[in-house]
Amino acid sequence: MKPRQQRIALIVGGLAVLGIAAVLVLNALRSNLEFSITPTQVASGEAPKDRVFRVGGMVKEGSLAREADGVTVRFVVTDTAREMTVNYKGILPDLFKEGKGVVAQGKLGADGVFVASEVLAKHDENYMPPEAAHALDEASRRAVNEQAAQSLKQ
């Protein structure tokens, strides 16, 4: 081999070894690299006991309720399979909405209610003008209605 080819082989080999090492390390750290866990994971006992963790999912439609003091809120986080109630005292981010993504950080109480110290909104990667969003909403509502009508007919 010419020295130049040797250097190429060395670099390619080095990068390959490095890549494999990275894959192994990332795999080992997998659970630590997750920003949040789902209510299903919490239900199956994957949540750390007596330690702060983050739970993520969707704010269930119609579940947001404000307590009498005006600053404490209660809502349900769902991943469509399981759900859990979250209690939070503080300011909610602008994008916090029913039916949208949310990540809450806090501890699971003995009563199964998650007491959050921080609530973050998770938004999707779709960007569109309000009219388009409205049209999409209408379309999906129409589809749901049609489905319902179909099933009634049957």
Partner: peptide, 23 residues
């Protein structure tokens, strides 16, 4: 690969962009 707070890519080679045209 992971659960992140950051949303996914709006523009990628594997799917149509999820953004309004002018944006």
């Amino acid at each position: 690969w992971w659960n992140t707070l950051h949303q996914g890519a709006s523009v990628s080679l594997t799917k149509a962009p999820s953004m309004a045209q002018t944006m």
